[in-house]
Design a protein around this nucleic acid. Sequence first.
DNA 1: TTGTATGCGTTATCAG
DNA 2: CTGATAACGCATACAA
Lengths: 331, 331
Amino acid sequence: MNYSIKDIAKKCGVSTATVSRVINNKGKYSKETEAKVLKVINDLGYKVNSNAQTLRTKISKTIGILVPDINNHFFSDIVQKIEKLLFDLEYSTIICNTDRNQVKENNYLNILESKNVDGLIIISGSSNSFSFEGKQKYIPYICIDREPFEFSNTIFISSNHLKGAEDATRFLINKGVKHPLIVLPKKLSISSESRLEGFKNVLKEYSISFSEETNTLVLSYNNDNSDILQKFFNNNHKVDGIFAVNDNLAIEIIKFLKLFNIRVPDDIQIVGFDNIPASKIISPELTTVSQNTNQISEYAVNKIIDLINGKAKTGTTIIVPTKIIERNSTK
Amino acid sequence: MNYSIKDIAKKCGVSTATVSRVINNKGKYSKETEAKVLKVINDLGYKVNSNAQTLRTKISKTIGILVPDINNHFFSDIVQKIEKLLFDLEYSTIICNTDRNQVKENNYLNILESKNVDGLIIISGSSNSFSFEGKQKYIPYICIDREPFEFSNTIFISSNHLKGAEDATRFLINKGVKHPLIVLPKKLSISSESRLEGFKNVLKEYSISFSEETNTLVLSYNNDNSDILQKFFNNNHKVDGIFAVNDNLAIEIIKFLKLFNIRVPDDIQIVGFDNIPASKIISPELTTVSQNTNQISEYAVNKIIDLINGKAKTGTTIIVPTKIIERNSTK
DNA sequence: TTGTATGCGTTATCAG
DNA sequence: CTGATAACGCATACAA
């Protein structure tokens, strides 16, 4: 059986109102009653019922996080950091793994709304843009890494993918690369698109011509890409530098090149993106562009809390700088 | 503003009771009223308030998961799988990152209890054994990988660490290893202890003498172990096979051995434990003992649901077999 | 400083 | 088939 505020009140010979006040530090009671109430609460191991509390106050002290895939290090890293920060602010976090699935995402959105979360943090997702409209009640939300459909309702936080990619490409060229290649996944997220754009920008900057066939290579996840890779490198002997749009791709390529005795970085230099742990394990260790997940997480929680308290306004975008981590896949 | 069942009732010209029945498919209403109610619900975008619902019914259709570190692949893998299974059963999941911190763990336990979760899944944790007692209400819980203090209140699910370690050690010996070494982290979890025990068992089986100094090496996480490693291998030239109690340790050693031109597997063969993604990235690729996270996850959700429905009894233990994944760090 | 009474949104009982 | 109403546990306006 569960104790309620009523039980405490009865045991103390006070009213439920008083108990409630004590619990919530609202003042308006004597030291003695406070002590008495606290003691009974402690003795009985009483705990508030947050459902009742939320029903009454409309405040749940809970933030929902939507994350596409908790197994992906970049995401789990951010989630873990956000969770930690929120915990310190006495918010609890409901982490929802959407599996990159639109239906699941909507489903969770409804659940979170019905649970009365105070705010939402949306990390990337299945579609490039996100809108949280048509709901009954406005719930403040932050978008990380996925552009909101309607900027005016939210705050958008993202790494500077464009500049990160430009830096990476320029880095390669400064290391002597004459024939740069960008490696992309099959379906481009909004951030991958920016990275591609950054790559192109720098080619233009250095008057290097760009063609899809020779400067672009598309790989698919989970599938065996060896045929594609083999065909590509048979036809493009000149490639001497690769910007892989993410570390997983970069690693796949390094493994492939090793197999074919193409030396990294001597024959081909490679830069990745994301700085996942595996980038330090592959040999040669991977030079990569790292996203500042600390800063992203901090902005996300600061802003969501501010929004909840009406201290921030929506319609803004925060761009977080990236950094090149130089390792041994470049000269 | 938020619509309630009352608003729907009024708009439909029926009572709240009827609306509730329709929502919950309880029957006792005509086709026409059903249609009418459903239409209004849809038009208004009404959503139930789960706090009110849970307050009333004591059922939240929510499971809490306590996980030490969501950044650790073994954990995030299990969490992700559990979440998926629960989602299909229309349970939502609250994932709590305890940061291997006892205080945080307790804190979350209280929060989850006050949110009226229907059940708990506890993955490993800060202490070797876990007990969820002294609470007002019994909440069914499952322990994964961490022995419960009191078996009778829970169901314990774990890989067969002992046998996994025995297999690994025997595997090494069968590959010709004469001087096996086990590498351990500083503080041993209950599962690491079992793995050590398994290692010792097999040495005995093959009449290989065991001494802490020559057959054991302790490394610490996050610190630079190169001094320790160097000293050890200077004094122990004979070592020709290593069982690392987990893949991270194994990888660290491989990297070290490479640096000192000790060849893997030619000079020293290595087997890890856990089959983390990085084990396929290191070269040579790591032979390792993989835990069956699919099966662990499935058992966990089946059992917690059964417990909730009173269809399983506590006090049992489920041991899940492991499997050796042979790769190139062994001959 | 304390207590009474009301309502948050739901479900369930009971009467019709 | 339908409706009125009480109760879940809590916080608060108001009265004392």
